[in-house]
Amino acid sequence: MTESNLIKKKPKGKMLLFGVFSVGLYLALFLNSETVMRFFTKGGMYAVLPIGTVFLFSYVHGAFAGNFWSVLGIDAKKTQLQEKMEQKKSTVRRSEQSRPRIRVQA
């Protein structure tokens, strides 16, 4: 395994992208908080608004937060399961490489 493989590339681009999205969503909500609160607290079928909103924010902001820790170099230690999965992948790759190929010489 090479050094470049061991030192994982940091997802700076993803972090920035989701960060901008996240800030945009928060700004949109808080700059229109009066309208938002009027509709979001109506109850009944309007319940879909707060529930849907938290799902959207958790996806965008969650992705930002996850990439933020990765950029800081705070990543999970490889678990046994992940190591097994990687071993499986590398075994598949090796078997693909060693497959005999037909070469046609015209």
Partner: peptide, 13 residues
């Protein structure tokens, strides 16, 4: 809770 209109989405977020 949302059905009863009691979620303050600002606090939640």
């Amino acid at each position: 809770w949302a059905f009863h209109g009691l979620v303050d989405i600002r606090l939640t977020l």
